[in-house]
Structures are given as C-alpha cells and as structure tokens.
Design a protein around this nucleic acid. Structure first.
Length: 182
DNA sequence: AGGAAGATCTACT
DNA sequence: GTAGATCTTCCTA
C-alpha cells in the first residue's frame, strides 16, 4: 500500500514478463507516470468510480487497462489504503522476444517497438482482456519481476499528453535511456 | 441512437 | 510541426 508516486519510481528498472504461447517476451520499465484519483483532473478516476475505471478503486498490484485513440494503455494500480491511483507504464526497453514484438508491431526498428504507452501494449499483444489481472503472481500471463536495482539515475518531469496536469512532476524515467519516449 | 472525447501514433510538409 | 487516422467507452437525447 504505497503512494502512486513512490510506486512509479520503484517500478523503474523492473522487468515486465509476458508469456504468450511458448514464447516469453520481456522488457525493462524505463518510464512511468503517476495518476491519482479525485484530486487529479487528468486521471480516469477523477469523476468517481465507473465501470471503466473500476480497477483503480480496487486492490493495488492489479492491471488497469484503458483505451485512448485506438491504443491500449497499461497501468498498474497503486495507492494507499482507502485512496485511489495508478501508475502508467510509458515505455520499455525490449530484452527478450524482440522478433515476436517486431511481428506484432509490424516494424523492424527496435526503438519503435516499445517507446510509448500505446506501442508497448501492441508489442506485448496486450488488450483489455488483461484488465484486473494480478501482476504480482508469476503464474499470470503478464507480471512484473522485481530486480535488484543498481544506482538508477531517475529524472522527473511533467506528464506528457495530459491536458490538465498537476503542478507536481509525476513522470519519471531512467536518465539517458534511449527507449524513453519524447 | 448518435456524437464527442481521449494519458496516442504515423505520415506528410 | 501539424494534420489525420482510429476505436472504445461514455454521455445525452
């Protein structure tokens, strides 16, 4: 039960694992954004609990998937007890199964595979079917593996593409990583 | 039933 | 740098 801001920083450097058929796709999380509930006008949870944002009000450690402009965006629910919030995964550094990701993305340019919230979901073949999935279980088809982090240089900035941002800097990324979107 | 929006991406100038 | 594509969900009538 941690604050979205804390979780967003903590997720950087961890590995997302996607099991698909016999293949395993993995990528390192290099960029995240934190979203809150009622006090955040950019959040999907701003207007209270609805059908489409239910996971944000539920247990932390679950997936929250939402569609914008025909792309699926992948969030991880994270908040303190009795609060609301989630962390958006904005970009990954592809590690394993790059061939497979290129098939899904229909491109052979590696920096176009996962450097954007809509891109990485397509590269991992993630859709709304994973909404609400528990990403802390290694038996899931999609989960996050904690890794030991060594001296990550984390940079914060304002969120991207958000029409009504908060004064706080809620976007975090690993410094000098070329897979961070711009 | 229909329209509008939205945490985006790509292609073109 | 700007415009157009694209599509699911929600809101209003």
């Amino acid at each position: 039960m941690k604050d979205p801001c804390y979780v967003a920083r903590n997720l950087l450097g961890n590995i997302i694992v996607r099991k698909i058929d016999s293949e395993i796709l993995t990528g390192k999380i290099v960029e995240t954004e934190a979203y809150y509930g009622k006090k955040d006008p950019a959040s999907r949870a701003y207007k209270g609990e609805k059908n489409y944002n239910k996971p944000m009000f539920g247990d932390p450690g679950k997936l929250f998937i939402y569609m914008v402009h025909s792309w699926w965006l992948l969030n991880i629910v994270a908040h303190k007890e009795n609060e609301v919030g989630a962390v958006l995964i904005r970009s990954l550094e592809p590690l394993n199964g790059i061939q497979k990701m290129m098939e899904y993305r229909k491109t052979n340019k590696i920096f176009l595979l996962t450097s954007g919230p809509g891109r990485l979901t397509q590269a991992l073949n993630v859709t709304k079917q994973f909404n609400g999935l528990d990403i802390t279980r290694e038996t899931s088809d999609l989960f996050v593996a904690e890794v030991e982090k060594r001296e990550l240089e984390i940079v914060s900035s304002h969120r991207i593409g958000v029409t009504k941002d908060l004064p706080t800097k809620l976007r975090f990324y690993i410094k000098d990583n070329k897979f961070v979107s711009k």
